[in-house]
Design a protein around this nucleic acid. Structure first.
Lengths: 348, 348
DNA sequence: TTGTAAGCGTTATCAT
DNA sequence: ATGATAACGCTTACAA
């Protein structure tokens, strides 16, 4: 008799009705005890609380959500769960959201606009209290939500130009600046860079910051020392292959994320170049692998946890009708100096 | 006028009532059109469908869930989101679940029993259709759900002895076997192993499989060549330090997951040992980093996607009252041979 | 085939 | 301070 595998009869999860009956009061009184908003006589409160204990009552969240139009749930939409930096958002947002008594529901768009619509609809149909986008493929979708419903929306990680949507982003210009300053301080004079897609703000901002610092120091980055990647390991390798085959001259390279930087390192090592003795390498994101390599990767860091907290806070503020002082929060990157960067070889 | 930041008036999301009114029918008819369960006149159906289009109606999932006691949502409980192998479960389970029209809600226990209880309760309160556990810290919690509610439960990745709970696991014995066979075939004769916690079935099973093959080949694994780790990078390093300092003799080592194997590699490289010329290394899981290293890591693979699909399918079957043919599904690992393993040096 | 009405488990508005 | 009662948006007997 495999009773485990047979659908057991529905086991009544205690409802307010049960509590009310046991405590000898009405359901409204029970509700009041729980919400703690309206004064209740001490004695009845105690009776009710005992009853709640006795039947192990927990309010049904669907009923609450239906009635109050707030599902106590926040939606997070990412284009790709396994992506090295999104998992940090997932982790920290989940943690923070649950700390404040919400649940997190995750949608993975796989970068398909059609899926994106579906996911958004689904979330709306769950009366989500807000939606956090990590990278938006189609701006209009976000605008539609904002215009047609009252659901708070926050965009994290990738800005959309100067729209009027609450946004939490990294100061990507500063990321490039930090990187260049570190390398220049080490005496490097010739550089290369593997960027993200050039049509993305974030990649361009990073590059601008990088180049500006070089210029300020009388140095520069020739276009032939720039390779456009897609933030994946493979294009990091490809970029380095390209540089090495075209004979580009440089003693330091920046991969605009760790994956590409590691790809570049991989190619260097396979061709017998020494890091950092021949070439210094900097990445960005500080993914797990960065410190597992030999040599360990110097990298630009993002305050993922802070970004997560701020974006959730913004959702809650919007939801409570509070005005958000700054609709565009810009956070600063840091730099973690490890073993892939060292002083440039003395020029001869 | 920052209208975006002011809570806008509630924008009525079309309900069945609206559709019914527009189509000139009752709500029940609308419901029937949607559920497609009960015959509806072709003409009214068309009227209703037009109305649905017109107001862009999507049934509210909370109301549906409340009424039907099925929230159309599946809960996944993991002890740690950022963990290298759980993210694969998250990814694949999310994908599959959403393919079949469900949402996924994720709970992160951080290995805290108290949180575990809370998360389970929360899920129950959302009328989840099932709960998938990836590693359970406290068996009794699972048993409680199974006994006290009718919520389908599946355990994935880590078995709990021989309980009567539907489970999807890897054949860990086979994982050890595969690894040993590969190394023995390469001519290795002395081995070392960095295991997971020895009090976990999975670690012991892997080790048994490994050792059994060695024995079958007239070889062995002395206790002094076994180091107990915790599946993290650091203990991989520590393990190798230990072996090197105690002068353990071996030409091949297995780290029971990639993180530990990579930790061991790290230590080897830092001490000037060559991989695989001096020491061959095998890992397990095939995490991203495995192929990014030089040399790239030979590793035992797990069918994460298949495990995900099967566990979701089991949930659905339980939910539909179907009997599950085998309550314990055991899947086979594979081996991905890359660059960290090579023929043993000829013994002199 | 279709409509009416009760009910899912809450909260909020009335009275009392 | 407390209790009826309606309502949230849907499904499902039961009638018609």
């Amino acid at each position: 008799m495999d009773s485990v595998y047979l659908r057991k009869g529905y086991v009544h999860m205690a409802s307010m009705k049960d509590v009310a009956k046991l405590a000898g009061v009405s359901v409204s009184t029970v509700s009041r005890v729980i919400s703690n908003s309206i004064p209740v006589d001490e004695k009845t409160r105690e009776k009710v609380e005992r009853a709640i204990e006795a039947v192990n009552f927990k309010p049904n969240l669907l009923a609450q959500g239906l009635r109050s139009k707030s599902g106590n749930i926040i939606g997070l939409i990412v284009p790709e769960i396994l992506h090295e930096s999104f998992i940090y958002f997932i982790k920290y947002i989940e943690r923070y959201v649950s700390e404040i008594g919400f649940n997190l529901i995750i949608g993975n768009t796989s970068n398909k606009p059609k899926l994106e619509s579906e996911i958004i609809d689904n979330m709306i149909r769950r009366n989500v209290d807000g939606i956090i986008f990590s990278r938006v493929s189609d701006k209009s979708k976000v605008m539609r939500i904002i215009e047609k419903t009252d659901i708070p929306v926050v965009i994290i990680d990738r800005a959309l130009g100067q729209e009027d949507i609450p946004t939490v982003v990294l100061d990507n210009y500063d990321a490039g600046r930090l990187c260049a300053e570190h390398l220049v301080a080490l005496g490097h004079e010739k550089f290369a860079c593997i960027t993200g897609p050039r049509d993305i703000f974030l990649s361009r901002d990073r590059l601008r910051g990088f180049v500006d610092v070089l210029k300020k120091n009388g140095l520069g980055l020739p276009e032939s020392n720039i390779f456009e990647g897609d933030f994946k390991f493979e294009t990091g390798k490809k970029g380095m292959q390209y540089f090495l085959e075209t004979g580009a001259e440089f003693t330091a390279i920046w991969g605009q994320n760790d994956l590409m930087a590691i790809g570049a390192m991989n190619e260097l090592v396979r061709r017998g170049r020494r890091i950092p003795d021949d070439i210094s390498v900097v990445g960005m994101d500080n993914i797990n692998a960065a410190e597992m390599l030999v040599p360990s990767l110097t990298t630009i860091t993002q305050p993922f946890e802070e970004m997560a907290r701020i974006s959730v806070d913004m959702i809650l503020k919007e939801r409570n009708g509070e005005t958000i002082p700054e609709k565009r929060v810009v956070l600063s990157p840091g730099i973690l100096i490890r073993e892939t960067t060292s002083r440039a070889r003395i020029a001869t």
